[in-house]
Structures are given as structure tokens and as C-alpha cells.
Design a binder for these strands. Structure first.
Lengths: 198, 198
DNA sequence: TGATAAACGGAGGGTTCCTCCGTATATAAA
DNA sequence: TTTATATACGGAGGAACCCTCCGTTTATCA
């Protein structure tokens, strides 16, 4: 099906530029939110605006690429936590991690948010990663009988995004975020399981 | 302190235009999100861009005004529900209402979200209304012993915004939203109260 | 009916988005 | 090495948008 492999090596300058653009964009987005001027990013990177647009056809594309890796790390943490903690603890720990992580980078929150808004491309890039991570955690918890069997990954995801987004709001947000995580945990516990009484 | 009351009646055309701008803006925001062109709004309204800017010094101002009333209605519903339902039921019903209501108008979600993001003016306009509504509901529930006494209004608010924002995402979002509401309700129930067993 | 404070409208300067295309260069073949 | 060319680069430029400024119009009040 694939036509004979392309003959040429990708040009080195191209790769370099792409890399550097992503790095600059990451900082810019983190510092100024998702509305930074793309021309600004190109300028700071030291390339022409045309170069930026050749690598990333539009703003969403660059956002998606920027935070694909980050989301990957977050998703990876789920498996690690499960290795070292009982399922329910792992779930709680991961949820806190999620809130911290996303809260620190608002772009990601608005990206995850836009799950709804039509910019599906963004979600398509990283949504499944997160969903799978949550699903993994939930499945283990269910296997343990620690949580109700009808809990859906997306349910938690939706709530967490909201919490993460409002993170860093005022003083006390951190405590608030932890409280919400605990409320969610309490809410999905299996009510008639032994642990529920805790 | 106030200087002698102004002598002139406000001009009729001014009020008319302001009203019409708000109405058009409301539809435009609902249909296209918070990034609609203000010139477009002025155009559709049939006034010059200058007129729009005289009435609303910037985009945030117009958003704030547009959704101030809506939020007011939502807040009012809390009291009504409390009149006709037991506290916990009222709370659940109101939360569902919140999700539906905000979900239908993305602007409001992103406005509420921006609670965090620095655009505090937006939140200042309507945030307290919502917070008070939730506080009222929670207080009644606490008085009944139906929920844990440490539940904070903002906690629920944060989670709800996330759910609302992702509302209308894919098929099944509605069911998902209801599930999350129930998870939250379960999470804030007073565990050792009589109702908890339900 | 006039005077005038108030409101209107839109031109215009600045910024950003994204496209297009002539120029430069890294790669591969000679 | 040299040459040919596919590939990438850079930035000018048209369109849309933001918001300001100010000359013109008009609703109010005497």
C-alpha cells in the first residue's frame, strides 16, 4: 500500500527549526496562555512566519503538538502509580497529579476543554491518552471492588478539568482542589465494600 | 457625596441601541463562542462600531453584561428549588440545572472559568451570585445533616464548571453529566447520617 | 424653535492571521 | 568535488479584527 519509501533524508534544518519552534511555543503558551501571537513565536524562535506555518498549519496544530508529550507523561504516571500503590490510592494520587499538572499549564486545560467546542483535533491528539490512563486506574479499582462498577473515565475527566482550570485562582485553591478530589473519590467508592467505611 | 442629580434624561436611542446590542451579542456568543468579532456584532445590530465601544469599553464588559442576567436567573432558581424540595434533592436538581444551563452557553463557561485566568472583572460580576446560590443550598443540606459539614461552595462550583464545559461534547454527554452530578452528591453526603445508605 | 449636551458612525493606525512565491540550501547523484 | 533539484526558508501582502478619535447628527430642554 505504501508507495516505495521516500528517497531523501529529511533536511536537518527543518528538524532543527521544528524542534526549536515547539520549545519556544511551549514556554510562550505556558507564560501567556493560548492566545500568544504566532508571529511572536516565530520571531522569538528566529525563523520566518512562513516556516512556522509550514511546520504547523494552524494554531491548534502547534498547541496539540506542544502538549502531546506532556499529556503522554501524565498518562504514563498512571501505570507507575499502580505499580507502587493500591489501586484506590493510585487513583487519588493520579488525580492530584492531574490537577497540579494541568493547573500549571492553562493551555492544556483549555485544550482539553475544547474537547467540546468543535476543535476536536486537539482532543483527538491527546484525549485518548488521558482517557486510557483513567480507564486503567478505574479498572484496577473495580477489580478490587473499591469503587462502583459503573464509574466512567470521562466522568472523572470532566470534573477534573474544571478543577484544574480554576486552579491557581485565589489563595487556598490548592486545598480546594484536594477537597474536590476527595469528594470525587468518596463519590465513586463502592458503598457496600469494606473500604467504604473509611 | 453624589453631586446634584444629572439634569437630562438619558437619550432614547442610546438605551435602544444598548438593549439591541446586548440581545444580538447574546445570540452571537451562544452561537459562536466568546471570540465573535465585535465588529460583526455591531454590524448585525445595525450600529457603528463606535457605538458598541461607547456602550461597552471592551469585550469583557459586553460578555459580563450579557451573562449577568442569565446567572441571576440560575442563582434565583436555588431558592425556588429549596422551597419545593428537600435540601439534598434541591441541591441535586440545581446542579443538573447548572450543567444544562451553562452547557448551553459556552461563553458563560469560559467566563466562569476565567475566574482563574486574570480576567477577574468577569467573575466579579457574577461569581458571587453563583457562589451564594451554592452556599445557600449547602447550608440547608448541612442543617439537615445530609452532607458533610466541610463541603465548600467553590469546590462544587469548580467541578460543575468542568462538567458543564464539556457538555454537548459527544453523544451520551447528558448521561455522563448526570452521572458526575451523582458522584459529587454521593461524595459530599454525610457518611454516617441516616440518608447515606441510599 | 433653538441651543447644546449627548450619541452616532466610520475612517484609520496598529496588530494578527495565514497564503503565496521567489530565493537559498541540504541532499544525492555524477 | 561538483552539479542538479527537491526541499525548506523568509517575508511581503491581503484580509480581518481591535480599539481610538473626531466630525456630524439628533434628542432633550428652555
Amino acid at each position: 500500500m505504501t508507495p516505495p519509501a521516500p528517497i531523501r533524508k529529511p533536511r536537518a534544518d527543518s528538524q532543527r527549526n521544528r524542534e526549536k519552534l515547539l520549545s519556544v511555543a511551549k514556554d510562550a503558551f505556558a507564560a501567556q496562555g493560548p492566545d500568544v501571537s504566532l508571529e511572536e513565536i516565530a520571531r522569538r524562535t528566529g525563523v520566518g512566519i512562513g516556516t512556522l506555518y509550514r511546520h504547523f498549519p494552524n494554531r491548534d496544530a502547534i498547541i496539540a503538538d506542544v502538549y502531546r508529550r506532556e499529556v503522554g507523561q501524565l498518562a504514563g504516571a498512571a501505570a507507575e502509580l499502580l505499580d507502587s500503590h493500591p489501586p484506590l490510592d493510585a487513583l487519588r494520587a493520579w488525580m492530584r497529579l492531574f490537577v497540579d499538572y494541568i493547573g500549571a499549564k492553562k493551555i492544556m486545560a483549555s485544550a482539553l476543554n475544547s474537547l467540546a467546542g468543535g476543535t476536536t483535533e486537539l482532543y483527538a491528539a491527546s484525549g485518548p491518552l488521558i482517557t486510557n490512563a483513567i480507564a486503567l486506574l478505574l479498572d484496577r479499582c473495580k477489580a478490587d471492588g473499591a469503587i462502583r462498577p459503573d464509574a466512567e473515565p470521562m466522568d472523572l475527566m470532566m470534573a477534573l478539568v474544571g478543577v484544574a482550570y480554576n486552579t491557581s485562582a485565589g489563595p487556598g485553591w490548592q486545598a480546594a482542589a484536594l477537597r474536590v478530589v476527595d469528594i470525587l473519590i468518596a463519590g465513586i467508592k463502592q458503598m457496600d465494600s469494606p473500604q467504604a467505611a473509611l
